[in-house]
Amino acid sequence: MTPAGIAVLLLWCVVLSFFALAGGLFLLGVDRKLAAHMQARIGPPIRQPFIDVAKLLQKENVVPGNAIPGIFHLAPVIALASSIVILFYLPVGSILPVLGMYGDLVLVMYLLTVPALAMVAGGFASGSPYATVGAQREMVTMIAYEFPLAIVVIGIAWRIGAAGLSSPFALATIAATPIWTVVGPLGLTGAFLLLLVLAAVTPAELSRIPFDTQEAETELAGGLLVEYSGRNLAMFYLAQGVKTLVLAAVIVAIFFPWNLSGFIAMPPWLALPADLLFFLAKALIVLFFAVTLVRVGMARFRINQVVSIYWIYLSMIGLLGLLLLMADAALPALVGVGP
């Protein structure tokens, strides 16, 4: 790669990072506002997360006496950095993945665990019983939702691969060929089930009610984050925002990859911001159903209930979806029609 190419790439990464931070906080603000309205409250203004971060950055950064300072300080940095990095591998609006040639959906799946692992490390390094319990729960939750998540990723990619496309795990391919266009009626049902599973994994990834056992305000007083304050907490908060954007981007990229410029002809200078806005709108809708509506409408589960829900119920639904997708791919060959 030429030096100019690297410079352009870096520039894109910086621009995307800022977009990730601002977009993430915006999504958190909208989430809070919608949740408040559903609870018959007015709620904070949409810019509240920005105010919160600005305030946290001014606050004292307290390190508990029996914490391990190195890991304690490193964890929020890793969490924030790794969540931003995931976005470089995802298509945002009509912007194709910046680092798309270096990684695919499987990498994204692995990268998604890094912020969670950083939080676990930070929790264990806090030296507080609440944080330790929270860290244990976070690990259990991760193990619980990893399997349904893998089913979704493999199922979709396998079906796209079965449709005869090369490199089915690449997000560029998935974005270019929406899953709904390559499958028949059976496959549509299967893909819908997988969408449900992915939507159910989202609250756990974002540690939101009903799967927020690792933070559980009324149980563990914030769990993993109980000892964090000031700049470190601000970074975790930003990471939470970016993760929200990333999860929305994953769902959008896999299931709703359409762009506005694909439907309406428009000049390139207009297409980019229009697609970005369209992307944010899609992300908002996805998050409303996957996170906001769910988190206000349910009670928190116990950690053992979380595990059984993911391992038994959601895995079953996921496997059923996968079977339907396989049947959908195999059916034309069996019946002897189709391509």
């Binding site: 009610i209 009903p210 009324t218 206000v296 349910m298 009670a299 928190r300």
Partner: peptide
């Protein structure tokens, strides 16, 4: 009680 279960909507509803 609803709040302790993490069910804040029910808290706001009953208090309303």
């Amino acid at each position: 009680a609803a709040h302790e279960l993490g069910f804040d909507s029910l808290l706001h509803l009953t208090w309303k």
